[in-house]
Amino acid sequence: MAHPQTDLPPAQTDSDFVQFWNEVLGPKFNRFRHILTGGLTHHSEAVFPKLPVRPGDAVVDVGCGWGDTAMKLARIVGPEGSVTGIDCCDMFLETAQAELAETDLDNVTFLRGDAEVALPEGAFDFAFARFGTMFFANPVAGLRNMRRALRPGGRMVHIVWRDPADNPWLSMAKEVVLRFLPPPGADARTCGPGPFSMADEATTRKMMEIAGYEDITFERIDAPVLVGRNIEDAIAFQLAIGPAGEVFREAGAEAEAKRPQIEAALTEAINRQRREADGIVMPSSSWMISARTPAD
């Protein structure tokens, strides 16, 4: 099977969000990759057997990160299929390219692009995104571009976090940090709407309908996630990434002055969590959202 035409439009000036991912979040995510990919294996194990992907499919992986899901999808579609991984973060793509070179796969292509700006149109049978669409500053535009990237009758699945109450691994630390620091101001630099922006089923369903999808279904996935190999690792992760990390980062000097108190409070909270062989584990919950494009 010939690989689909996957040209992206000429590069445009990066948005503030894309600049923030490259300048601030990329290095932080690289540091905690063992949590952000390895720690989410329970979700992947629950979701991948259910994906409507067939041998020979042309697939786009939006927000592909370090490329692990793109390469996993490439094994499913086989040599007659192809996978195009797209991400806006240069650091992630460099790692993806390096790790792809160590495999026997020749049906994977990684591209630098912003799904909110444009994707190749009408080129794919299946679109996938793992914990990426939640960060769309304009979710309808991003979801619409994913739909336009699909052929008539094409299928898509994206995985997003459910509400904070079902994800204490993200929400608990923020609650602790806010006991010591003020919430971020309206002018704070962020990675986008954040991990819970698509938690509400009714709101997200409406966005997908506006973006042009049909047969939209939501399936709840509950799974444990690794939050750190030990207490120190878990605290460093929480203060670098996610809702608690945003509060801590934006507080600047005040946060550093109060770091000992904050770390003591986080130690107490994290000590109450479950231990497994590979580290500290907490509950998490996501939506697996599936949909189709119109057949004609």
Rank of each mutant, 00 (worst) to 15 (best):
N30P: 00
R31P: 01
R33S: 06
H34N: 06
H34V: 09
H34S: 09
L36F: 07
T37W: 03
G38S: 05
G39F: 12
G39Y: 11
G39N: 10
T41D: 08
T41Y: 08
H42Q: 13
H42K: 13
H43D: 04
H43V: 14
S44A: 14
S44M: 07
E45V: 11
A46F: 02
V47Q: 08
F48S: 02
F48W: 04
P49D: 09
K50Q: 07
L51W: 04
L51F: 00
R54I: 05
R54Q: 11
P55E: 10
P55K: 10
G56L: 07
D57V: 01
D57E: 02
D57G: 00
D57A: 03
G63A: 13
C64T: 12
G65T: 13
G67S: 12
G67W: 04
D68V: 08
T69V: 13
T69H: 04
T69K: 04
L73S: 00
L73P: 03
R75N: 07
R75G: 09
I76M: 13
I76L: 10
V77P: 06
G78K: 05
E80C: 05
S82D: 09
T84A: 11
G85L: 02
I86G: 08
I86C: 08
I86Y: 06
D87F: 10
D87P: 10
C89Q: 14
D90R: 15
M91C: 02
M91A: 07
F92Q: 15
L93T: 12
T95W: 02
Q97R: 15
Q97I: 03
Q97K: 14
E99T: 09
L100K: 03
D104G: 01
L105R: 01
D106V: 06
V108N: 03
T109P: 00
T109I: 06
F110D: 02
R112F: 08
R112T: 14
G113Y: 13
A115S: 15
E116A: 07
E116S: 05
E116N: 09
V117A: 11
A118F: 02
L119C: 12
P120T: 08
E121A: 15
G122N: 15
D125G: 01
F126S: 01
F126Y: 12
A127P: 02
F131R: 08
G132F: 11
T133A: 14
F135C: 01
F135A: 00
F135D: 00
F136R: 06
F136D: 09
N138R: 15
N138A: 13
P139A: 12
P139L: 09
L143A: 13
L143S: 09
M146T: 05
R147W: 03
R148H: 01
A149I: 11
L150R: 00
R151C: 08
P152V: 14
G154E: 14
R155K: 14
V157Q: 09
H158V: 07
I159A: 01
I159M: 04
V160S: 12
V160M: 07
R162G: 11
R162T: 09
R162A: 05
